[in-house]
Simulated assay, not measured.
Amino acid sequence: MALFNKVLAQIGIGAATVDAKLFKAQLTAGEKVEGIVEVYGGNTDQKIDCIYLRLYTTYVREVDDKKVKENFVLNNFKINDPFTIQPGEKKEIPFSFNLPVDTPVTMGNTRVWVTTGLDIKNAIDPRDVDYVEVLPNPIIHEAINAMVDIGFRLRQVECEEAPHRLRRRLPFMQEFEFVPTTGPFYGKLDEVELTFLPDGQDRFEVFMEVDRRARGLSGLFAEALEMDESMVRFYVTDQDIPKLQQMFRDAIQRYS
């Protein structure tokens, strides 16, 4: 019977299972993720080579003029040495890791999750998935408020493949797309896109793309050639939060 149970466990029947429990599921990038992993023994003893955690998100890239969604591992961790789990046994293993500072905010279509798995030789690796809500840090939070106060509405948030010249650690950038609904830029601009890239401690490089609305024949030609877009780059820190609205207004005014 023991041999039969081992054979079943190799194909996932009656095998060990895993369940991760996060102490806190709402965090901002850079915060510490803490929790425990519970491992439950199955119908036979099994050697667990390691317990691993992988932090995932998704982004969109173009392949043959089609948008394709890709899963991407933001970080991965091994949290234990090899051990053997006995039938019916329960083990609890604590873990902690810092959420990378470039973890995207879970707004719009963006999702972030932790996959917990057991690495078991010659057997199916059990896995568990836990979603994390990544909140905007103070700079991004206030930037969104500043754009709304200027007269824009946040239309879309999405992680898209980044041009090679702008890539950092990640192959994508999270874009916050705003459209003017009131105020001085209504009727003048199609949209404004903001991207925030970490640059040291409490400092972000901001990419602002201003998309002007086509006006007249020359404007239509410019739009067709994508010459109606202007890219602005500048840096912001926590100290700049009180003046973000004026910084954004001046930058948009300059290129609208």
Results as ranks from 00 to 15, higher is better:
Phe4Gln: 12
Lys6His: 09
Gln10Thr: 07
Ala16Gln: 04
Val18Leu: 08
Val18Lys: 06
Asp19Ser: 14
Leu22Gly: 12
Phe23Gly: 09
Lys24Cys: 09
Lys24Ile: 04
Lys24Gln: 15
Gly30Cys: 00
Glu31Gly: 09
Glu31Asp: 15
Val33Ile: 13
Ile36Tyr: 14
Val39Asp: 02
Gly42Phe: 08
Gly42Met: 04
Thr44Pro: 12
Thr44Tyr: 01
Gln46Asp: 01
Lys47Pro: 03
Leu53His: 07
Arg54Ala: 15
Leu55Arg: 11
Thr57Ala: 00
Thr58Phe: 04
Arg61Asn: 11
Glu62Ser: 15
Val63Phe: 00
Asp64Ala: 14
Asp64Ser: 12
Asp65Met: 07
Lys67Tyr: 10
Lys69Ile: 14
Glu70Ser: 10
Asn71Lys: 15
Val73Gly: 07
Val73His: 08
Asn76Met: 12
Lys78Thr: 15
Pro82Val: 08
Phe83Lys: 11
Gln86Glu: 11
Glu89Ser: 06
Lys90Ser: 08
Lys90Leu: 11
Lys91Gly: 05
Ser96Lys: 10
Leu99Ala: 04
Leu99Pro: 06
Pro100Gln: 01
Pro104Ala: 02
Val112Arg: 00
Asp119Ile: 04
Ile120Ser: 05
Lys121Glu: 13
Asn122Met: 10
Ala123Ile: 03
Ala123Cys: 02
Ile124Phe: 10
Pro126Arg: 10
Pro126Leu: 09
Pro126Glu: 06
Val129Asp: 14
Asp130Arg: 13
Tyr131Leu: 09
Glu133Asn: 15
Asn137Thr: 00
Ile139Gly: 00
Ile144His: 01
Asn145Leu: 14
Val148Tyr: 11
Ile150Pro: 04
Arg153Lys: 11
Gln156His: 06
His164Gln: 11
Arg168Ala: 04
Arg168Gly: 05
Leu170Ser: 07
Phe172Arg: 01
Gln174Met: 12
Glu175Pro: 01
Phe176Gly: 11
Thr181Asp: 06
Thr181Phe: 10
Gly183Gln: 09
Pro184Phe: 06
Phe185Met: 02
Gly187Cys: 09
Asp190Ala: 13
Asp190Phe: 06
Glu193Met: 02
Thr195Gln: 13
Gln201Met: 09
Phe204Arg: 00
Phe204Leu: 13
Val206Tyr: 06
Val206Ile: 14
Phe207Trp: 04
Glu209Leu: 10
Glu209Arg: 15
Val210Pro: 03
Val210Cys: 03
Arg215Cys: 04
Arg215Pro: 01
Gly216Pro: 02
Gly216Lys: 12
Leu220Glu: 14
Phe221Lys: 09
Glu223Pro: 03
Glu223Leu: 06
Met227Ser: 10
Asp228Pro: 03
Met231Glu: 09
Met231Ile: 12
Gln239Phe: 05
Gln239Ala: 13
Asp240Cys: 01
Asp240Glu: 06
Lys243Glu: 07
Leu244Arg: 05
Gln245Ala: 05
Gln245Glu: 15
Gln245Met: 13
Gln246Glu: 11
Met247Trp: 00
Ile252Pro: 07
Gln253Gly: 15
Arg254Ala: 12
